[in-house]
Design a protein around this nucleic acid. Structure first.
Lengths: 353, 353
DNA sequence: TTGTAGGCGTTATCAA
DNA sequence: TTGATAACGCCTACAA
């Protein structure tokens, strides 16, 4: 009904009917005495705007405390400044550093990261990717190479850069940033062989769906076979990692055939075994050497400290972000291969081997 | 130039000049033979849409693989389905579980979380909040109560729910979800007093800017004074936590006056001290008891295992998300106090005390 | 219960 | 170098 007498003479910007109430690019343009498109051009530093207008715009922005509305910008350009990232989980010891470095690197360039956790479920991953698509993301990041058909279709059809992290598979289409789990398993086996161990077992992850551990086992098995030794895999039935580690240790050291070294799918399992060995009075590494994977925060603090393999978590996040920024033209090409980024894992030798 | 002959007779939807190419609500409406506003109403399940039209819309959505454009929706309603969260860091052992539960809870209700890390810097926090504002967030979450003037002004002026997490201060305006660091310090002191320790020292955090540790020290000091004992605070100069812990242990056990129990600002410092004590042959807890704060993943694995206080990280994230959803009308009021959410910390008694 | 008109704040396009 | 105009895709207000 708007029956208020008009107050157009007010100094305040005219009340909008719906908006958020914040200053818009038009307010800035009016105050600076230029067209709004000139403000837009100046603020994104593309196109040409004279120094004089630039100063007037700067002053208006400061006076109005103007913050560009990125939602509107994303809609207009159909290319939002967001990047979606799906990880198995956020709080675990594994992916946290990747998330951190990925987020920080993209934030620095004005991009926001949308996060979702899949909990190792391909269906949850698909839901997350679908949700991300609603944000018109500039790029998408997923973990590993195992996706549902629906996810694959969405990733392929999105027409934006897609990065697969952690698990490196050069023959896949998306940008790869990761390391070879097969090689990690081989690294572990070679390390133990070089220390003279002969009866080397591998303990699977108790968490179903951790397919990367299977690749590590295959790498371990390949090296053992090269050396004429028979691979020996144990799959725990206990669900909790520490319990599974204890179970595996008992099974592999108390039977008729005794392992003299055990490679665990991750440091959690290895820690469970290490604690169990102390309680049982089994000397590590004299009676049986143990090693893990992941180099979790506690691994150097155990007694004996745990030999493990450190995956390049921070580097993965940073390089993934860089490759995305390059693909989006936000960062100059550095001449390195853009699609295939194979990183190495560091074997951290400590007391348990 | 577009000199191609027109191909308007094609069955494909007409090529748009700018759009993302994905199906829009209008495509769905056309296919279902309804108005686009009806599709909108049906999909958000408010307003009334007949069952028959609903089915036709469902079919069209499935056929076109339609994903609503949340950017456009956010712009139109000036109320985006995003929530911004600033934490000191993402990958540390402290905030990861809060981020995880916060993110998961909001994701489940169709909201996306934008993350930024402040690294304990109020200026970086201000930058993050300003960046978030560009997304017209539905709510904002910050950590602690120490902000710049600019941040305070933005939070107050945003006109959206604001949550302060971790540090609980009932007299502040924003929604509070956290625990009392003062009480944590008191808890630690009471625990050690109850075990008979008398010369109890407190070791500050070596990281500047961790103001929560100062509150814990004050709580510790208050309890000691209540019992007629003099507080004794040590501030390490080493930057790395483990080194700082070792330094503190040496200073507090080798001087003329010897501590018989030490409260550390966090478990990292305590772990550094614990490892140093083993090397030095100092019996823990017989010669000196040690306790930390945080209950990090390694704390139960140390030898002796570390007594510590577990902050409710997961609960903080979940309750913060619930309060936000309630404030936004997405979740029914559960009758609990909406603004003040004081959670308790659990003292985890282990071998080191 | 359904539809029409128009605005949300920005950027792409094209003209000056 | 600058500006007018028309999208971008959806939602609010109001009408039928």
């Amino acid at each position: 009904m708007k029956n208020k007498p008009d107050e157009e003479a007010n100094e305040e910007p005219a009340r909008k009917r719906r908006g958020s109430g914040r200053a818009t690019i038009h307010d800035v343009a009016r105050l600076a005495g230029v067209g709004s498109i000139t403000v837009s051009r100046y603020l994104k530093k593309n196109g040409y705007v004279s120094a004089e207008l630039g100063e007037r715009i700067d002053a208006a922005v400061a006076q109005l405390n103007y913050v560009p509305n990125l939602v509107a910008g994303g809609l207009a350009s159909s290319r939002g400044k967001v990047v979606g990232m799906v990880v198995p989980n956020i709080s675990g010891p594994i992916f946290a550093s990747t998330i951190q470095s990925f987020n920080d690197t993209l934030n620095r360039h004005g991009y926001q990261v949308l996060l979702a956790s899949s909990y190792f479920s391909a269906e949850q991953e698909e839901n997350a990717v679908r949700a991300f698509l609603g944000w018109s993301p500039a790029a998408l990041v997923v973990t590993g190479r195992f996706h549902t058909k629906g996810t694959e279709a969405m990733l392929a059809g999105a027409g934006i850069p897609v990065v697969e992290t952690w698990d490196y598979h050069p023959r896949r289409k998306p940008i790869q940033v990761g390391y070879s789990n097969h090689e990690v398993g081989a690294q572990a086996a070679r390390h133990l062989l070089s220390k003279g161990y002969k009866r080397i077992a591998f303990v699977q992850n108790s968490v179903a769906g951790d397919l990367s551990a299977i690749d590590r086992r295959d790498g371990y098995a390949a090296v053992l076979e090269e050396h004429g030794l028979e691979p020996w895999t144990y799959a725990p039935t206990e669900a909790a990692p520490f319990d599974a580690g204890r179970q595996a240790l008992e099974a592999l050291t108390r039977g008729r055939r005794k392992a003299d070294a055990i490679v665990f799918a991750n440091d959690n399992l290895a820690a469970g075994a290490l604690l169990a060995s102390q309680r049982a009075g089994l000397q590590v590494p004299q009676r049986c050497a143990l090693m893990g994977f992941g180099d979790y925060a506690f691994s150097s603090l155990l007694l004996p400290s745990l030999t493990t393999i450190r995956p390049p978590g921070r580097e993965i996040g940073e390089i993934a972000a860089q490759r995305i920024l390059q693909a989006l033209g936000e960062l100059p090409d550095d001449g390195k291969p853009a699609r295939l980024n194979l990183l190495g894992c560091e074997l951290v030798e400590r007391e348990s081997t």
